[in-house]
Design a protein around this nucleic acid. Sequence first.
DNA 1: CGACCATTTGATATGGATCAAGCGATGTGG
DNA 2: CCACATCGCTTGATCCATATCAAATGGTCG
Lengths: 228, 228
Amino acid sequence: MLQQTAQTSIRRSANGYLAGHHAGEGHAETSRIEVMGTAMSFARNTEIYGENEPAHYFYKVISGSVRTSRILADGRRQIGAFYFPGDVFGLEAGTEHAFAAEAIANARILVIRRSAVTAAAARDVVVAQELWTLTGSELQRAQGHLMLLVKTAQERVAGFLLEIAARVKATREFDLPMSRQDIADYLGLTIETVSRIFTGLEGSATIALPTSRHVVLRDLGALRTLNS
Amino acid sequence: MLQQTAQTSIRRSANGYLAGHHAGEGHAETSRIEVMGTAMSFARNTEIYGENEPAHYFYKVISGSVRTSRILADGRRQIGAFYFPGDVFGLEAGTEHAFAAEAIANARILVIRRSAVTAAAARDVVVAQELWTLTGSELQRAQGHLMLLVKTAQERVAGFLLEIAARVKATREFDLPMSRQDIADYLGLTIETVSRIFTGLEGSATIALPTSRHVVLRDLGALRTLNS
DNA sequence: CGACCATTTGATATGGATCAAGCGATGTGG
DNA sequence: CCACATCGCTTGATCCATATCAAATGGTCG
């Protein structure tokens, strides 16, 4: 439940239309999902919404980062996606969220009433289009993620690094907001395997790890080759 | 290329609005994706569209079945989905198809101009909604498919059987239109592993296999338990 | 400094892949 | 109508990539 989440501070935005891009991020595209939104803060590892919770809202990352996950009865966890500033999440078309969402690092999230968006979409064709396009991108990401099923551990990790670099708009160097466990659960590997492969890539001078959370891509060609 | 596909026979449908449900299937829902469609036939194992081909059309299965797949440089293949009568496929929001589509069994496919649908969506809110909903369902399927990454081979196969049973609207007994290799590539396993698990499930009286392509689900409870 | 948590490293186990036959159904040409 | 090739599937033997179990290291915070 959104309302129950601990450590959240609510600030109601101006009761007007919000451009989709947020201050200070320099995104060029202007979203037409112009709705009354509420910016909320979520502390590290707090739940934004739960699995199977009714999906009353859409969400847009203002700052920080988010993971979505689904857990089997015995505790095995699959991470569906990571979201970074500018990304919209939670727009599954169903009435319930199939995945839970949690803040990885302290995050500010723009929370948007689903009904407001669908109402806007009913009036404004451009909004409807945007809704479709966003869902389509999400589908494409999920389909790409599926390709992990045919890939080796090394290929998964190499692909992961390239994907994150692209998502955070870094070319060579970036911070990983998520833990090794998150990475493992995203890739369908164990934390030990992920760690060993990081070490291996460091040994082959493909990457450098000044700290365990800071990655330098030293040989993009090698990574791309591994990514198949 | 659609036009190059061998062994296709084209029949232009009445130049009018087509209800989304097709003859003899008894589907109750009536689609508003009412467009000029063209029914085409595709022989077993022929390509409907290729990977990276511009996405000019949407497709709806009238009869037969379809698989979508993506192949890595070295030949490893991932199957993205199987589609059965009534299913719509090819609606990735991008301008190109991320997966190829092939007929598994001889299939009749309703081919719908993408531009016709998007034009209709621009006029008719209901069509726009439907487009979004369909893409959303596709997303949900892909997300469910992703859960394979945390599952054992047995769980994958059990889940597969339950999924296909649901998709073909069978409770206990149905034909598998696809080969063991297709199943393996869908599940991220090898053909040998799939075969062994089928045999194992047969041995435990969970299923019966009167022929290799005909499945009888004898113990749904056991299958559901395996499916986690 | 000490406790805690994340990460790495090491040793061993194992599920599923790989390699290799065998088998049964279907189809073809003689 | 039958020998034989072909194809899809199953079964068997062995291997190996990754999981599991266990411990050490390092970084962070009170």
